[in-house]
Amino acid sequence: MVCSKCEKKLAKVICPDKWKEGSRNTTVGTDRKLHENKLLSKPGKARFKPYENKCKICKSRVHQEHAHYCQGCAYKQGICAMCGKQILDTSMYKQTAK
Results as ranks from 00 to 15, higher is better:
A67G: 04
I79S: 01
I57N: 09
L34S: 04
G29L: 08
C80F: 10
S4F: 13
W19P: 00
K56N: 08
G78R: 04
C58M: 07
C73L: 04
I79P: 03
E52Y: 07
P50V: 03
I14D: 00
Q64I: 14
S60M: 06
G22V: 08
L39P: 00
C80G: 03
K98I: 12
M92A: 14
V28L: 01
G22D: 11
K5S: 13
T27R: 08
P16M: 02
K45P: 01
A74G: 14
K56C: 07
G22W: 05
K54L: 15
R61G: 09
N53L: 03
Y75L: 14
L34G: 00
D17G: 13
F48M: 10
Y51I: 12
S23E: 01
G78K: 03
K54G: 07
G22S: 08
K56E: 14
Q64E: 14
K76M: 12
N53W: 08
F48L: 15
K42A: 06
A81P: 02
E7G: 02
K18R: 11
Q64Y: 15
Q71M: 08
Y93T: 09
P43L: 01
Q77A: 07
C6F: 13
N25Y: 09
K94V: 15
L10K: 08
H66L: 03
C80K: 01
R32L: 09
L40Y: 13
K45T: 09
K45M: 07
K9G: 01
Q86Y: 03
D89E: 11
E21N: 00
C55I: 03
